[in-house]
Nucleic acid binder design. Structure first.
Ligand SMILES: [Mn+2]
Ligand SMILES: [Mn+2]
Ligand SMILES: [Mn+2]
Ligand SMILES: [Mn+2]
Lengths: 227, 227
DNA sequence: TTACAAAGTTAGATTAATCTAACAAATATT
DNA sequence: AATATTTGTTAGATTAATCTAACTTTGTAA
């Protein structure tokens, strides 16, 4: 186990690999432009990094075509994702941070070069399956649970759902959710949907009727209770 | 408090500042050559970094003279030392690492950009005063307890002392101490000293008579029990 | 089908941090 | 005092990661 710790990638390479993984989670491939926007790095820089990663057999790259991870690149990416999510869980569960505070710190700690460090985290947390934002944590072999959750915005009036994950871990978004007393596991009733802008009126935790914009409902991933 | 978190130094600069601090702990100044050896970086590189740090008012530097920290540089250095030692303590006390495993990991984590992260560590540890190797942890204002401990090798035959700190935190040295069942707080009797090579015969924890070379005894810092 | 916009590449510059080679200053040894 | 050794600096090259400006390819819309 931990067979991928022998791959030594720089902090920068790890960030690229993670970005490619997360952007391609659905479509399977990613454009240079997507990466450029996600990482806030100009396109020529991304192009040259793709050449470098292709050289190292971590990504498939051909001029003017979208890029994708090779099996080796995927494994490396999954390990970075594992380290990131374990760290977030550690920061929340062991250190007492709020879920809105951990992403930026994890973004740094995920690059620590010590397999033992992450192994200890995993052990202390009792081998968790999900991070504080509801995302699955890849196992030590790089396998990840892949059951894509529907967004709240895709649900219908009258449905009862529970908040299972969020697709935005930014401090701003999560602080907003905190202010509305929304957290993972909250049971939500969809009272009504405004056809004009897709905003939803919800009740949860005994609240009467809170309105959430579609922008927000797109980021709330839910488990369906009854259809 | 935490007034120095506004100073933003790169990982590299932080390592230089910490090295200058630790080398000058006794003499007060450091040569370019000392730094070069400590950091395993060639002298011309050190020279140019000294110019850069002098530019930023963190060190005093004049051609061909030893360098020293300015008050600003000293404060920055103390904060890095604080982060390093808090991290080592955290790794041992909270995460269950051995004292021989933590230095290299702390060397990386000390550069995490998040004052809150280190504040949480400090809180969880109950504001510790010493790290796992017996070195004092600077307070949030950068003040550090400065009572230099004598090395075991400076003590005399018949003295009873207790192991208070080690001046070498390398995995190799500490693994050696582990193999001899020596840890901080151990009460030691100096049975005899070999004049030829300065090696010492000690008894502790009910052992009969263990011999330690001067190289080792130089690195064991002790508190005197009786004279 | 031509024209325009978006996406991507190439070329060349920049920055931080490092290096080697050559030279200069300071210090130690004879 | 002369010489040798150690220490330190200068100059210039290198590497990783980034950028801008200019150009090319691809895809879309007139
Ligand atoms: Mn995250
Ligand atoms: Mn990162
Ligand atoms: Mn240490
Ligand atoms: Mn360090």
């Amino acid at each position: 186990m931990y067979s991928y710790i022998c791959l030594m990638n720089s902090l920068t390479e790890e960030n690229y690999l993670k970005a490619i993984y997360s952007l391609s989670a659905d479509r399977g491939t990613v454009n240079v432009n997507d990466l450029s926007k996600r990482l806030d790095i100009r396109m020529p820089t991304v192009t040259s990094m793709m050449k470098k990663l292709a050289e190292r057999k971590l990504v498939r790259y051909e001029k003017y075509k979208p890029v994708s991870l090779t099996p080796k690149g995927e494994k490396a990416a999954m390990y970075v994702v594992r380290k990131h999510r374990l760290t977030e869980m550690f920061l929340v569960e062991i250190m007492g941070f709020g879920w809105e505070e951990v992403h930026d710190i994890a973004e740094q700690i995920e690059h620590v070069k010590s397999a033992e460090f992450f192994r200890k985290m995993d052990e202390l947390l009792g081998h968790p399956s999900f991070d504080p934002h509801g995302s699955p944590i890849p196992d030590p072999e790089g396998n990840i649970r892949r059951d894509p959750l529907p967004a709240l915005s895709e649900c219908r009036e009258g449905e009862k759902v529970s908040l299972s994950a969020v697709s935005d871990s930014s401090s701003e978004f999560l602080t907003f959710l905190n202010s509305r007393r929304l957290s993972l596991g909250t049971e939500i009733n969809i009272l009504s949907i405004e056809p004009f802008d897709g905003s939803m009126m919800l009740s949860y935790d005994g609240t009467s009727g809170q309105v959430f914009s579609k922008v927000v409902c797109d980021k709330l991933l839910v488990g369906r209770k009854e259809k």
